[in-house]
Amino acid sequence: MISPQLVQLQKQLKAGFDAHPCDLKKCSALLVQLKLGLSQAGLLPVLATPDPNMDELIFVRDILEIGAFLSIRSKDMPSFVRYFAQLQTFYTDYDTILPPSPRKDPLLGLNLIRLLTENRIADFHTTLESLRLSSEDATENRFIKHPVNVERWLMEGSYSKVWNAREEAPTAEYKFFVDSLMDTIRNEIATCEEVAYDSLPLKDAATLLFFSNRSELLAYAQQRGWQINLVAETITFATKGEEKVEIPKAKLIFANLAYARELEQIV
């Protein structure tokens, strides 16, 4: 049975979580108390039992979900990862027993976005596959659709679409990822430009890199070591000289010796 004290704490936490603006300090203090209480009651970590108590499980799930959201709000990624890992039990193993949580899809979407911003594309796809979504869901569910689209645009190179989509985030928490995502994109574009252009007018470079003012662009250009011609208002990218194709002699000799040895063995 859940002690009334814990229930009381959970109510406070929920109220604190829904309040605008959210008092992060107070909520995290409540979370610590709740987690302690849950561990003492033997509800955390969740152990496999033959007939699980539904109310208890839902109770724990609620707290963990709120914890996950709160850690994003306080920009604490490792904490989000921990909460999400704990929630996996509820989303996969107890999926058939428990009533679905309204916060599940947003959290899954957030996790996907997190993987994208950390540039872990392989993990992104593994997670996406394991969501067991029918193909309908991937295109209809707005929480999942957002990260899926973002990934597709990133891979295609339609960076402007990603940029424009940053306002379409389905929940407020997505915005916390936007900044780091934009940094990722900017670096991608910059590497593309270095190869694809000889030189670029300053104004166009700013638009391409989504900089709103010139000083930001200049600082960024300096950081990447681009040459700026202030008179002609252009950026010149350091051209890498035609790489001389060298014959990898040592490798070829080694390979040929290996063939000779093997052939010797056969004949």
Binding site: E188, C192, A196, D198, L200
Partner: peptide, 28 residues
């Protein structure tokens, strides 16, 4: 069948970087 010229520019840039094509974009 791309949506905008802007997209095309980024896509071509990425293709050049990934070594799919050889060439240069002349932005002006």
């Amino acid at each position: 069948n791309l949506d905008s010229e802007e997209d095309a520019e980024y896509i071509v840039g990425k293709a050049i970087r990934d070594g799919v094509i050889e060439g240069k974009v002349v932005h002006e």
